[in-house]
């Protein structure tokens, strides 16, 4: 069991720039370690997902994550598909290959843009909300109160959020990819003169199942990352309302960067 409530920490002023840098590196490593420990605990706690005590909260988190983000994700997904189709379509037209926008849009949406866009939106909306919520709870001593009552904050707060993001991110990603393909089809039909059946035929024929799986796998990983980064930042909040603001901002920035880097690494590893 990991203690969430932390004592305030104080450091002597660093001797020089190098000292400051070294300290930051060490602190970053420590925080990453703590976040991973918390992830381990939360994953173990997933076994309580359907227990009577946790079920209402889990369902609530599914609702917040899934349903509430649907609007933004839909709009972003359609436009992403449209932009992809237009962009590649204009180039392909030079070679008389417009019909290949089908596979271009399908593959980029499934493998790259779908997971990427969905994760960014979730990190900015759901992730930041998690960090702010948990940060406020730390500041008002609610987390301390839970720990004193021997109620584990990880089981009560992190696990439901992890379950929701872990499962909803792939689902939303698939949904976003499909909307993107539809958006691409519309552009194909109206701007590039590619008929819908030709577009779909091209998309389905040349896209591979692997593209789908890789995309869903990425989304799954992104979901876990967003939750853990946001929860960890929230729990590390110090210094009142200012601290909550900082935790929220940090959580969004760190999530964005990690999504980019990890997304690249996964593609790289699986398509070498």
């Amino acid at each position: 069991m990991v203690m969430i409530t932390r004592e305030p920490e104080f450091f002597p002023p660093p001797i020089n720039r190098l000292g400051q840098f070294g300290r930051n590196v060490l602190l970053t490593c420590r925080n990453a370690g703590r976040a991973l420990l918390m992830l381990g605990e939360a994953l173990l706690d997933l076994r309580f997902m359907f227990s009577q005590r946790s079920r209402p909260e889990v369902l609530h988190q599914f609702y917040v994550t899934g349903i509430k983000s649907l609007g933004v994700i839909s709009v972003v997904a359609i436009f992403t598909g449209m932009i992809l189709a237009l962009q590649t379509g204009l180039e392909l037209r030079k070679f008389g290959q417009e019909v290949n926008i089908g596979v271009a849009v399908m593959v980029s949406m499934l493998r790259e843009m779908g997971p990427f866009m969905t994760a960014l939106i979730l990190a900015a909306s759901v992730g930041s909300a998690i960090a702010a919520e948990l940060g406020t709870m730390v500041v008002s001593e609610e987390i301390a109160a839970l720990e004193v009552m021997s109620i584990r904050p990880v089981r009560m707060l992190v696990m439901p959020r992890l379950a929701a993001l872990m499962i909803m991110t792939p689902i939303l990603t698939f949904y976003a990819s499909m909307l993107g393909v539809i958006g691409g089809g519309i552009v194909g039909l109206t701007q590039l003169g590619v008929s819908i059946p030709a577009y779909m035929d091209n998309a389905v024929r040349y896209a591979e199942n692997k593209d789908l799986y890789v995309g869903l796998f990425k989304a799954f990983v992104f979901g876990i990352m967003i939750t853990i980064i946001a929860c960890h930042q929230g729990f590390s909040t110090t210094e009142g309302a200012v601290g909550v603001g900082r935790a929220t901002r940090q959580s969004v920035i760190i999530s964005f960067l990690s999504i980019l880097v990890v997304g690249y690494i996964i593609t790289r590893l699986l398509y070498e």
């Binding site: 069991m1 406020t136 008002s140 001593e141 609610e142 301390a144 109160a145 720990e147 004193v148 021997s150």
Partner: peptide, 18 residues
């Protein structure tokens, strides 16, 4: 955990879950 079980604690701000 066992030691804490003996306690009831009222925090300065109440610390209620919102």
């Amino acid at each position: 955990e066992l030691l804490r079980e003996q306690f009831g604690v009222l925090f300065q701000g109440g610390a209620l879950l919102e």
